[in-house]
Design a protein around this nucleic acid. Structure first.
Lengths: 369, 369
DNA sequence: CAGAGTTATGTATGCGCTTACAGAGAGCGC
DNA sequence: GCGCTCTCTGTAAGCGCATACATAACTCTG
């Protein structure tokens, strides 16, 4: 810490400038209400003393912090520090949301407190964050719903991504998600109707992820609509949804007995990119021999060759929407039952599905219910 | 906000579980010191009531918040929302640092409060952050040094990047930077010695940026070492250091009268990538006709064709180093004069300088002074 | 120039928690 | 059975600020 003793407080400033602590407080809270000369004098002393108002005391007294929070799971696997891929990937989900929230929060005069779950202290994470913010967002599956439920009775909470919790358990928490179902359905429809796909293979995850499930259901729906027969299960489920797993999945699907699928539909971009590499090594042409699609719209998807057709998720918007909701609740502009906002996604048609790189797009998904 | 009235406090929990507020507090702060049965009873009541300790009150009473902060300038230009390039680029500086700090902070049990400067309230940003955290980092040029100076007398502050402030003004603030000079010097040396470059052209920025200046000085030093004659000024200065400006710079350098430079040395990767595109359009071969290098080591640098030779900056480490410093100060493990840590950078040799894509590397830069 | 209306400042209280310090049992050796 | 040490719990005093309310200093009216 610095040198000199304890940090100066309102009392110190008040004393040295010959006013009461109330006046010092007013200089900061309502500058107009104090006579200019007095104000200047106080500010001068404050500056000389190195006075900085204590956010804690201020928050305690005024019952609000001016801070919004975000809790997210710890995606990064420490061992993979060196792997740039891991970084890129991780860079997407949480970081984009952070960025989106930070921007939106700033616009409304809030700062952002972020904390990733740490397998550690008892119910530590959320409680810690919750106790320091006016309201916060939580990435799905970061913390037990029961806990959120309790907390959301006291302050606004919004759940990001994941499914809307059943209304009876989710007491007062709002919800923001992207149109996973609609996006995958639209993309699959495009493959079938515009590119004549008949034997698509879906590659999902073995981890339980509502988002991935929703995507798969979208895939099934599109197949159903078009009369394309597919199993009620993904052709393959992998563990981690990484590039490596995607490559492996592509290999597996090629080796598999019977006719090769005419399209590999991956649940995320990372896997699709890995598959692209694997297919290239194998000499399988994309989109000549097989079509490949991803989901997420990460920057990499635009840069790989062939460029990847995917569904773009508005991550920044996700964060922004969360903040909007929180601010509305805090300002009292919105009251009443929890809402669920669904953000539309965009199908980005690129080379890997057989389209040119025209980036033609179609939106899918809708608003609030 | 939720439904029911005010949030429950220790008093409510204490009353309903038949103990004193001190005991309730102990249940959270020193669980071992309270008899198991009592503890369970309290926890049960707390949970039933939806009790969450107030971070503010806790912080006030204990004089510490368990939160570290980061202040950074608002890079993102709102108009460029749609431009994906802008996103990618912006994603790098602040976001990587955020990520690095968050991880490191988490390891030490701290959460992270982030806030970007908003051209707004009087001395708002830093004061707001400073008042809510135990210590914080500031990206160079985000706030006036004078203010930091005052604040750093009361709590640990770390300045990121930028130059070390002159010791007399920088009272107690530690400093972390990357070896801009050494990195650019080493890269330039490589161009000259290993690729026979004789007429390198440096493209810098017209904005005053200590980092960019340091790089340029590194460039000059290498030229001087090798007896290569160059002007004492960059061949060109651009405004924004964006891809668009980089492309324009490349055009300009090609049009310029006299012999074309044999290497374009850009002050960052963004510009270099823009230049790569411009040169391709012009039919100028890289590295055949001219060599191109960047600085930063953004993910994109690896993906463009030809892959970009650059100097990789350990952004994550920057954030981590800042946290380490803060934690050392807070724990009392480090006392005394402010230190300045310089993080080594890595020259990444790729195709654009004429090397294979072998990613051979050489470190440059050193530790603490 | 008394009284009403304004504005600038002071007084006093409490926000919800931590933490010395004190007190009450309980177990133990003498 | 007395004093002692331990362990567990209660009492009380703030932490630094915001703010309702009271007060003082002026400015107007009539």
């Amino acid at each position: 810490m610095g040198a000199s003793g304890a940090a100066p407080t309102v009392y110190d400033v008040a004393e040295r400038s010959g006013v009461s602590i109330a006046t010092v407080s007013r200089v900061y809270r309502m500058p107009e209400s104090v006579r200019p000369e007095t104000r200047e004098r106080v500010l001068a002393v404050a500056h000389a003393l190195g006075y900085v108002p204590s956010g804690n005391a201020r928050g305690l007294a005024s019952r609000s912090t001016g801070v919004l929070g975000l809790c997210f799971p710890d995606y990064s696997d420490p061992d993979a520090e060196a792997a740039e891929d891991a970084d890129d990937a991780a860079m997407l989900y949480s970081d984009q949301i952070i960025r989106g929230m930070e921007r939106a929060a700033r616009r409304h005069g809030y700062a952002l407190l972020i904390a990733a779950s740490l397998k550690g202290g008892p119910e530590s994470l959320v409680a810690k964050v919750a106790g320091r913010v006016d309201g916060f967002a939580v990435l799905a599956r970061t913390v037990p719903t029961a806990e959120l439920d309790v907390i959301s009775r006291r302050q606004p909470v919004v759940m990001l991504a994941g499914p809307r919790e059943s209304p009876d358990t989710a007491d007062h928490l709002d919800h923001v998600e992207v149109a996973n179902f609609d996006g995958q359905r639209e993309l699959t429809r495009h493959l079938i109707e515009d590119h004549g796909v008949r034997r698509p293979a879906y590659v999902g995850s073995s981890e339980e992820s509502p988002d991935v499930e929703a995507r798969f259901r979208g895939f099934l729906a599109a197949c159903g609509d078009a009369g394309v027969e597919v199993a009620g299960e993904p052709a393959l489920r992998v563990g981690m949804m990484t590039q490596a797993e995607g490559a492996r999945a592509a290999e597996a699907l090629c080796e598999r007995a019977g006719e090769r699928p005419d399209a590999f539909v991956f649940a995320n971009d990372q896997m699709a990119v890995g598959a692209l590499h694997a297919l290239e090594r194998r000499g399988v042409k994309v989109p000549g021999d097989v079509l490949v699609t991803g989901f997420d719209g990460i920057p990499l998807s635009r840069l790989v060759r062939p460029s990847l057709t995917t569904v773009h998720q508005p991550m920044l918007r996700l964060g922004e929407a969360a903040v909007e909701l929180l601010v509305e609740r805090l300002s009292g502009a919105r009251t009443g039952d929890p809402v669920s906002v669904m953000l539309p996604v965009t199908v980005v048609r690129r080379t890997s599905c057989g389209c040119g790189d025209t980036e033609a797009a179609g939106a899918a998904g809708a608003a609030e219910r």
